[in-house]
Design a protein around this nucleic acid. Structure first.
Lengths: 147, 147
DNA sequence: TATTGTTATACTCTATAACTATA
DNA sequence: TATAGTTATAGAGTATAACAATA
């Protein structure tokens, strides 16, 4: 009897493993945030504002690698939904802050993120987890150096 | 003097590190393959055919998590460009094989991938590299179990 | 002049739905 | 009926270019 075993030549590549692992976590997180009406990117933006009050949308874009042009409609949507407020700062800059509603959404998102992360890290001990994250950080250290 | 240190609260999350590391490698690989006219996805498909002659496009889609509907135009393009040939197999299935030109492109892509991977893995010793890839594989083991 | 924010637009990926052909 | 392949299409996400407002 003849058996053809299908093998995937990409499996030993770091880039491939990163892509698949990243996509799997992204899909799970998107699902976890869906019913509070936040996309993963929107949640990321809210968390930047929470941690850095009065940050500008351009700065958030630089941190998260989102182009200025793409930050505009996202910021507009968060303002319109009452999650974020802004006021004039320097030049054309607008300082962003969370509203009470934004803080509430952020807190709920934080709990869901913690559960989501725990699900994927459950069989790693703390040291392995830290080592993995440190290794990943080195993978894109070139990007980080640009800032 | 007042200094505001901007900090990124996402930095300690596995999901975030995966996304950034994956995006960095993907962009680098896309650039490395650009002048041989292959996208990263096209290269991935060619390598599946090289490693598994007479595979069908549906099977490739299952391995790489590409929907059948999205495999169709990609296969058509690879056929049209003379990189892949096909012949009727079972039912509506079409067995795919690399042409000589496809094999040549695949070999060149393989060399570029090796250089690209080495660039990102250069400061990891072999054991670290293997451990990292094994850890990543566990991150999306849920997806793999579905196959 | 350099930076911020905005608009328009295009391209790639990805997703669903509907259809045909074959076992 | 289940599977393979195709087509059309819609939605993200991301890219560039051009413009106005401000230091």
């Amino acid at each position: 009897m003849e058996v053809t075993v299908i093998q995937n030549p990409l499996e030993r590549l770091l880039g491939y493993q990163l892509r698949r692992a990243s996509a799997a976590m992204l899909a799970d997180l998107a699902e976890a945030l869906a019913d509070i009406g936040l996309s993963v990117t929107e949640m990321s933006v809210l968390m930047q504002i929470e941690a850095n009050s009065d940050i500008t949308q351009s700065e958030i874009g630089r941190i998260l690698a989102i182009k200025r042009a793409n930050m505009a409609p996202m910021t507009a949507s968060l303002l319109e939904r009452g999650l974020v407020a802004r006021e004039a700062a320097d030049g054309r800059s607008q300082a962003l802050r969370l509203t009470d509603e934004g803080r509430t959404a952020c807190a709920e998102a934080g709990r869901r993120i913690a559960a989501h992360e725990a699900k994927f890290l459950s069989d790693l001990v703390g040291a392995e987890r830290d080592a993995l994250i440190a290794l990943l950080s080195r993978v894109w250290s070139g990007e980080q150096a640009k800032r």
